[in-house]
């Protein structure tokens, strides 16, 4: 069973994937996210950090045995067990499919829409409107898939659910108000089922679904 | 052993990953990329295609047994064997790490730099210059890693090499002229070693490394 330390800044949705996976697998995971263990912008710029993790990005994982890993999906995979990884080639491939879907289809439009509401990037009306349409398209694909399913792959939680839930967190917390998410009831049912799992709650705490779409923070 | 059909347009670097994986694993793979089997922009918009592949993007895979998969990394994984997937948790996680690295660190700056030279997107001087710097950073990370290694993970070709080689194809063919790639000799040695493997050559044919950096196609 894997054991080691996850270095990240606090409240990092990319790190949540690994933390939730460890809750399911029982992997012994320490999280270094605040001083003195880890100071974002300093620790990850030190020569010793960069010699193991040359991109200088977080999250990164360092096993008690010295095994080093970067890229959040790889870390979440390493800290998982077979139940989360998929017990057949088909299941493992489908889990990988949804993890890729989260990174390539959800994160770009979700960030374009949410970041201006947090004051992180400049608001751009056209980009935001296009991102909203992209998010609708993506939620439509998920809603269709979840029409007859409780979880994304197979009959129980897998890395697919963990990865996609974490990629949707900011959307559900910040902008998916009830009227916007109404057409995607299967997705919201699935999302709430997941975040209410003990292992998700242990990492995410109470996740409050947004009741009023946040506007950009001028 | 998996068997089925890959739907894509011709010369799609994302589809190459699955095709090369099948060369190594012996999976029976048919490629539908030209009429009448497949016409990009038409077939992938038909209701029957969209019912199996709701994103309408390619490549997609349909097994002879009806098993459907989208997202190129998932398809390449499904068509692989254990040697390509990694024979331990550590190896599999490292392979996943490099596949994520390709998608998140290589593709964005590579597309920004190469697309204008192909006439795919408008040239933007600042974006191109920034992309060149990111490509240098990424090649530096790879060059460091390959300083003491023949392949990215373990002692033989894996999905990591296949995925990263395919994500670098356009760069090496279009803009990485000798003077630009000179500081990254380990990467070029590794890249040439891979494309000269029989299984890569069977799919890619002769890959000619660029000798003059292409400029944007006004």
């Amino acid at each position: 069973m894997a054991a080691g330390t996850l270095y990240t800044y606090p409240e990092n949705w990319r790190a949540f994937k690994a933390q939730i996976a460890a809750q399911y697998s029982g992997a012994q995971l320490k999280v270094a996210s605040t001083p003195p263990a880890f100071t974002f912008g300093q620790t990850n710029r030190t020569p010793s950090f960069l010699s193991s993790f040359p991109l200088g990005k977080v999250p990164v994982f360092q096993g008690d045995d010295g095994f080093c890993l970067f890229e959040s999906n790889a870390i979440a995979y390493y800290l998982s067990n077979e139940a989360l990884r998929g017990s057949s080639s088909e299941a493992s491939a489908q889990i990988m499919q949804w993890a890729s879907f989260a990174d390539s289809e959800i994160i770009p439009p979700a960030s374009t829409w949410v970041f201006p509401t947090l004051g992180i990037i400049q608001y751009n009306k056209q980009a935001t409107e296009q991102a909203k349409e992209e998010v609708k398209r993506v939620l439509g694909v998920l809603n269709q898939h979840l029409n007859t399913r409780t979880f994304l792959v197979g009959e129980r939680v897998s890395l697919a659910d963990i990865t996609v839930v974490c990629s949707l967190l900011w959307l559900y917390k910040q902008v998916l108000e009830p009227s916007f998410r109404q057409p995607f009831a299967n997705v919201t049912r699935w999302f709430v089922t997941c975040i209410n799992q003990r292992q998700f709650k242990a990492v995410l705490g109470e996740v409050k679904l947004c009741d009023k779409m946040a506007q950009f923070d001028a | 052993m998996a068997a089925g059909t890959l739907y894509t347009y011709p010369e799609n670097w994302r589809a190459f990953k699955a095709q090369i994986a099948a060369q190594y694993s012996g999976a029976q793979l048919k490629v539908a990329s030209t009429p009448p089997a497949f016409t990009f922009g038409q077939t992938n918009r038909t209701p029957s295609f969209l019912s199996s592949f709701p994103l309408g993007k390619v490549p997609v895979f349909q097994g002879d047994d009806g098993f459907c998969l989208f997202e190129s990394n998932a398809i390449a994984y499904y068509l692989s064997n254990e040697a390509l997937r990694g024979s331990s948790s550590e190896a599999s996680a490292q392979i996943m790490q490099w596949a994520s690295f390709a998608d998140s660190e290589i593709i964005p700056p590579a597309s920004t730099w190469v697309f204008p030279t192909l006439g795919i997107i408008q040239y933007n001087k600042q974006a191109t210059e920034q992309a060149k710097e990111e490509v240098k950073r990424v090649l530096g990370v790879l060059n460091q890693h390959l300083n003491t290694r023949t392949f990215l993970v373990g002692e033989r070709v894996s999905l990591a090499d296949i995925t990263v080689v395919c994500s670098l194809l356009w760069l090496y063919k279009q803009v990485l002229e000798p003077s630009f790639r000179q500081p990254f000799a380990n990467v070029t040695r590794w890249f040439v070693t891979c494309i000269n493997q029989r299984q890569f050559k069977a799919v890619l044919g002769e890959v000619k490394l660029c000798d003059k950096m292409a400029q944007f196609d006004a």
Partner: peptide, 30 residues
């Protein structure tokens, strides 16, 4: 969390690039 999130590198233009690539290859493939 917001302060850290601003350090994340996101490919905001990915959708535009996907669209441009699709149009290009639809053109190439008639």
């Amino acid at each position: 969390a917001v302060q850290y999130l601003s350090q994340e590198k996101i490919w905001f233009e990915k959708t535009q690039y996907d669209e441009a690539e699709r149009r290009f290859y639809e053109g190439v493939n008639g």
